[in-house]
Simulated scan of single mutants.
Amino acid sequence: MAALRDRFGPSPPVGEPTTMPDPSLWVTAIGPNPARVFALVHQAINRPAAETLATMRSVPFQLARGWPQSFEGLRAAFADAGATVEVRYS
Rank of each mutant, 00 (worst) to 15 (best):
N33E: 14
G31T: 06
L40P: 00
A3I: 09
A49P: 11
P60K: 00
R75L: 12
Q62F: 02
A2D: 15
L25A: 07
D80K: 10
P17M: 10
L4C: 07
S90R: 13
A29W: 00
S70W: 08
A3F: 09
A83H: 02
R75T: 11
S90W: 12
P32W: 03
Q43A: 15
P34V: 05
M1T: 11
G15I: 01
H42Y: 06
W26K: 02
T55H: 10
P48F: 06
P68T: 07
P12H: 00
T52S: 13
E86P: 01
A29T: 05
E72V: 09
R57G: 15
A50D: 15
L4F: 02
P68A: 09
V27M: 06
V37N: 01
A64D: 10
G31S: 08
I30Q: 05
G15M: 09
T18E: 15
Q43F: 12
V41H: 01
P10G: 07
R88P: 07
D80M: 07
L40W: 02
A77Q: 09
D6Q: 13
F8T: 02
E72K: 08
L63D: 05
F8Y: 14
A77R: 08
F78P: 00
R65E: 15
Q43D: 15
A83W: 01
T84D: 14
A2Q: 13
W67L: 12
S90F: 12
E72N: 11
R57W: 06
A64I: 06
A39L: 09
F8C: 10
D80A: 14
R47N: 13
T84S: 11
R5E: 15
G15E: 10
A29F: 06
R7F: 13
G82E: 07
V37W: 00
A64G: 05
F38P: 01
T84E: 14
A76S: 13
S24H: 13
R7E: 15
G73S: 10
